[in-house]
């Protein structure tokens, strides 16, 4: 909202200021566009569904239903900012979820099972990071190995769904912290907390600035003496950790671990990150943008289920939106390259 307001103000104060703003903050434009799309979707749905859409209940559910995707998108943002990609997150989430459910079903206390879930995810991330950094494997292929490994290990843990009875894990989902008609669950808090920590790390720590520097130009980052190797392995570990955390959130959400969870979720996460304005060549983007991207994704899903349309439209609309955003990004990148 504030973004729109500032843009209108600039237009009033003349084109030269607008141009300066655009050239300074060209990288933010896709994120503003995502905010614009989100508002448009809200307003459109509100009008189309005759004031039935923007209710505290719906908005609260939006966060609740997409908490796991939000966590994944945060991890994915780190990787994409370095110019990499992580295809493994969906499988890692499934593996971590089923691992946790199995451990809990075997009577392991939650204080052991939950760290095991997170470490399991981080370990797969570490493997991908080492392959990428030390063996010069392309991120696509290295994370592909992670995808296969995660999915296979999920089935090794269990071939069928395992119900979770552990009360502390279910508490994450069943508790509703209410404020009037609004509510938030601990899983929602976890997701928002992840976003906040990620934003802090990316913008206010040495590691975060290194991540942006690698995305801008790995060569320059190395020549500047930044710890490129550590940061590059680090982003995959973070993404794996987020995958593990998403497994926890999803297990709490669905009340069970299931090895077929999250097939294709990596694509949803990538789509959300791209819609949120992070550029796939790396170096530009914001974790807040990824959050907006997830909400755009979730809102489309809600609208489609409200309209009772077929789910197939969901895939088509997300595909079309993705295309729109890439073309916008392409134009921005082309312009900034032209300036250089």
């Amino acid at each position: 909202m504030t973004a729109m307001a500032t843009r209108i103000q600039e237009r009033a104060s003349g084109p030269s200021f607008l141009q300066t703003f655009l050239s300074r903050h060209g990288g933010m434009m896709p994120t503003f566009a995502a905010v614009g799309i989100l508002l448009l979707l809200f307003v459109g749905a509100e009008i189309f569904l005759r004031g039935d859409f923007i209710t505290p209940r719906n908005i609260s559910a939006l966060l609740l239903d997409n908490a796991y995707l939000l966590v994944l998108a945060v991890g994915m943002t780190f990787v994409i900012l370095t110019g990499g990609i992580d295809l493994s997150v969906g499988s890692v989430m499934a593996f971590s979820g089923i691992l946790g459910a199995k451990l809990l079903a075997d009577g392991v206390p939650a204080v052991v099972a939950v760290p095991a879930m997170l470490l399991g995810g981080a370990a797969i991330g570490l493997m991908i990071g080492i392959l990428v950094q030390y063996f010069d494997v392309q991120p696509f292929i290295a994370s592909l190995a992670g995808l296969f490994l995660g999915r296979g290990l999920a089935y090794v843990v269990s071939l069928s769904s395992i119900k979770v009875e552990e009360s502390s894990l279910l508490w994450l989902q069943s508790t509703r912290i209410r404020l009037g008609d609004w509510y938030i669950t601990p899983t929602g808090l976890i997701a928002l907390g992840t976003v906040a920590i990620a934003a802090f790390v990316l913008h206010l720590t040495r590691f975060g600035r290194t991540v942006y520097a690698i995305g801008g130009s790995e060569q320059s980052a190395r020549l500047m003496g930044l710890k490129v190797a550590r940061a590059k392995v680090g982003v995959y570990v973070i993404s794996g950790l987020c995958g593990g955390l998403a497994g926890l959130v999803l297990t709490a959400y669905s009340g069970a671990g299931y090895p077929r969870n999250g097939i294709g979720t990596e694509l949803d996460a990538i789509a959300a990150v791209v819609i949120g304005g992070t550029i796939l060549t790396g170096g530009r983007g914001y974790v807040i943008g990824s959050m907006i991207g997830v909400f755009v994704y979730g809102t489309i899903k809600t609208i489609i289920s409200f309209m009772g349309a077929e789910q197939s439209w969901m895939q088509i609309i997300v595909g079309a939106l993705l295309l729109l955003f890439i073309v916008v990004q392409r134009a921005i990148v082309a312009r900034s390259e032209g300036r250089r």
């Binding site: 694509l267 789910q311 895939q315 088509i316 997300v318 595909g319 993705l322 295309l323 890439i326």
Partner: peptide, 13 residues
């Protein structure tokens, strides 16, 4: 990726 996401939707339609 665009077609990968949208293609299955088209096939379902």
């Amino acid at each position: 990726l665009v077609l990968m996401l949208a293609g299955r939707g088209v096939a379902l339609l």
